[in-house]
Amino acid sequence: MASTRTSTFVLPGDRLDPASLPSHPTLPLKLGPGLRHIPPNTITPTVAGQLCTDKRKNAVWVEFNGGRYIPTTGDLVIATIQNSAVDIFYASVSDYAPKATLPQLSFEGATKKTRPQLSFGALVYARVTHANKHMDPELECVSQSTGKSEGLGPLTGGMVFDISLGMARRLMLPKPVEQGALVILDELGGQGVAFEIAVGRNGKVWVNSNSVKGTIAIGRAIQETDEKALKIEEQRKLAKKVAREI
């Protein structure tokens, strides 16, 4: 993986060296977050971060940790139900941002007769289906193709912790240990601590375990790993400490 990727620091408006962008004979160039294309052929970064390229996928994006979550199609998020209308729920994805809509029928097995009863403050793990700058985002808790929940749906029990967007991205990497230098969860599991976890791309992580004390300890450990930028060795030490105290 590392051999096909390179990274350099960029600021908004920097002129990118065309040689630094990947080129592929057949695949079209994919622009990821933090970049914009000014027709006809200018590509400039819009945020400060590291410019990353992947030659194999012919993709280029800017890696950054920051700010407020901006809904993007396909992201998995943890949303809080605010209120419900006739056939939709209004859910909050990030504070003070416009509410996202979640149709009451987009749950596994929901019909007009049996729809989920969710009240104010209930948590759902959902996928963003529509994200358009002119419209409020739309969520779903069921896979459109299979009709199964695939892990999405209401989150009962447990507790939500706020983390940075960068940490959420690290937790959701396919291989967090190799790609994100993140071993805290594996170590906690290795110490025999049983817990459930759901990570939202909007900077939220939901943790559930068999005791409230355990839930809070695990959530705090994740937050500490994020805030103090703990190295692998320090994460191991923290996991041992948490497992001992529970």
């Binding site: 620091f9 940790n65 960068g166 994100g180």
Partner: peptide
């Protein structure tokens, strides 16, 4: 100045990134 300040911050934020 802006470049060096932001560069430092980004490097710190992405310490995990290889």
């Amino acid at each position: 100045f802006v470049k060096s300040a932001m560069g430092e911050k980004v490097a710190q934020d992405l310490h995990w990134h290889t």
